[in-house]
Amino acid sequence: MDMTDNFNEEEYISGFNKGYYLAKEFPELADILKSATGTSDRLAGMKDGREQYSYDHFESRLPSFLKDSPFDKQDKTIEKYKGKDIEPDMER
C-alpha cells in the first residue's frame, strides 16, 4: 500500500502550524518534539514546522560578518577600479 493513500493533509497542516508556533514561542518544548517517534501526519507536520521555523530564522542569528555575501564585496571592488586601468587582486 502506498503511503500517499493514507496521507491526511489537514492533519499535516495543523501539525505544521503547531510545530512552527512551538518552535517560535516554546523552543525547549520544540526541541523535545524533535526526538518524538511516531508515524502520524500531525506529528510529521509538527516536526516539519519546527524545522521550517529554524530555517526561517537561521540567518537572523548569524553574526553580521557572515550575513554579507563575499560575492557582493567582490563586485564592489571591481566597480571601484573600473575605468582606472587597475586590475584588482581577486584572491582577497
Rank of each mutant, 00 (worst) to 15 (best):
M1S: 13
D2T: 12
D2S: 14
M3N: 09
T4L: 15
T4S: 12
T4M: 11
F7K: 00
E11K: 06
E11N: 05
I13G: 01
S14D: 13
N17S: 12
K18V: 07
K18M: 04
G19L: 01
G19R: 01
G19H: 03
Y21H: 10
Y21K: 15
Y21E: 15
L22V: 06
L22R: 04
A23S: 15
K24N: 15
K24I: 05
E28P: 00
A30G: 10
L33W: 01
L33K: 05
K34H: 02
S35D: 10
A36D: 11
A36Q: 13
T37E: 15
G38M: 03
T39G: 11
S40G: 07
D41P: 00
D41F: 02
R42N: 02
R42E: 15
L43D: 01
M46K: 03
M46C: 03
M46Y: 00
K47H: 03
K47Q: 12
G49F: 00
R50M: 12
Y53N: 07
S54K: 14
S54Y: 08
Y55Q: 12
D56Y: 07
F58H: 06
R61V: 07
R61K: 12
R61T: 14
P63K: 10
P63A: 10
S64M: 08
F65Q: 11
F65P: 01
L66I: 04
L66D: 01
S69A: 08
P70S: 05
P70A: 03
D72E: 14
K73I: 10
Q74M: 15
I78Y: 15
K80F: 14
Y81E: 07
K82F: 11
K82R: 13
G83A: 05
I86G: 02
E87K: 11
E87D: 05
